[in-house]
Design a protein around this nucleic acid. Sequence first.
RNA 1: GGCGGCAUGGCCAAGUGGUAAGGCAGAGGAUUGCAAAUCCUUUAUCCUCGGUUCGAAUCCGGGUGCCGCCUCCA
Length: 471
Amino acid sequence: MDKKIFLYNTLGKKVEEFKTHEEGKVTLYTCGPTVYHFAHIGNLRSYLMEDVLEKFLRYAGYDVKRAMNITDVGHLANDADVGEDKMVAGAKREHKSVMEIAKFYTDAFFADCEKLNIKKPEIVDPATNNIPAYIDLIQKLFDKGFAYLAGGNVYFDTTKLEDYYILTGHTSEDLAVAVRNDVEEDTNKKNKTDFVLWFTKSKFDDQELKWDSPWGYGYPGWHIECSAISMKHLGEYLDIHCGGIDNIFPHHTNEIAQSEAALGHKWCNYWFHVQHLNNKTGKMSKSSGEFLTLSLLIEKGYDPLAYRMFCMQSHYRKPLEFSYETLDNTVFAYKKLKDRVSSLKDEGEVDNNVVEEYRGKFIDALGNDLNTSFAFTVLYDMLKADINDRTKLFLVEDFDKVFSLNLTHFEPVKEVNVDSELEAFVLSQIEARKEAKASKNYALADEIRNTLLEKGIVLKDTKDGTLWEKA
RNA sequence: GGCGGCAUGGCCAAGUGGUAAGGCAGAGGAUUGCAAAUCCUUUAUCCUCGGUUCGAAUCCGGGUGCCGCCUCCA
């Protein structure tokens, strides 16, 4: 950690030097997925950039402890503020039990992550696993006078806080005028911004998942899980809390409210928010617009890692517009980059001075509010520089700890057992073509090349002879 | 209506006061029997108007456009 790292902090709305609560250690919390449907590639953009953040912090020398929840309890079903819990809706749609649905989509989520080389956080904890922790936390809020009971539900009283709007820049007047007209107001609340900590009496009666509590049989409000799960695993002081930008209000605002009310001191120092992925019509979301999943991209023939590179070429705090044109652009760039790396020879000796120089540039780029785009520039500059191939390979492998683009995983051109027959055939064809060329029978030479191409074999004539690869 | 973000060449994108990185595509050249691959060269005054400054893409103010949030969403 000899280099300073700077990150944009939503709390304060500016780029700040990153300092951990405990020297050399980072506690990192991520709002996990709600597992009632597949994640779309916009969701995955957030997790992807958070993965880059985590890997970069490790690269820079921090010991990172990261936790993530899985939301397998109630979220509402649709825009109109009516209907049933989303998990229940998902279960009905697919004729499965709620917990089966949760398991299915949790697995699907992590399968997507794996394809994108997103590391699974070492701590993943489902919301349904932590009911006693929510009850403890809510009890604490009662003891301290922040919670009240109304109409059977437990609410958090936001007026008891000094600065409820710390994350958003709103004022209480703003919301007083603003509230959307399609939302049915909850008359139990003392204040508009108060939120539910525990439901016993819900508009949504067909909740399948309910638990006993001191306030009655019911289920937790949707903010409490993140506070409780984070504190359970990461303690009273959190370094970084990540999430999508649309979680700033109300979810993260309310997390801060309940956490700091319970703890009696500042809870989390840095708030890291990833912007949306848009398409031409606007935000990609679960409830509106095009629902593009990773599986769909794969079906269309895209390498998930090309999507990873697509995201990293842009900045996490900029809205990114998805289009196939731009993705195709990245597909070419990714292939060219890998080809370039694969052509490096394992020659020379690793030059440690050069390594340190470029590692420094790489850390400077990413340490500047995770400037992934510039990190690629460092990579390209390094590949162009006048240094030996082994040093380049070493650095590519090193940078790839953060990029995670499998830049040094080359497809084996020849698989000894499986393709030896094919290899012999191709080599004989190459030899035949060479002879044809030597006798200036170009028609035959081209025919051989075209025939191989139809079989998916691409020939490359180089100074050292003809090479081939499977397209 | 309130709050917030964004606006750089065909596309993506860096840049945080000193005179426009990088990638992809395109063009020209080298190489090739021709191609592909590879290598070299090459393409902008930064949405608009005004201000501050010796000097602004970069700071300030007014527009315009796009996007998000305002208790379902990453």
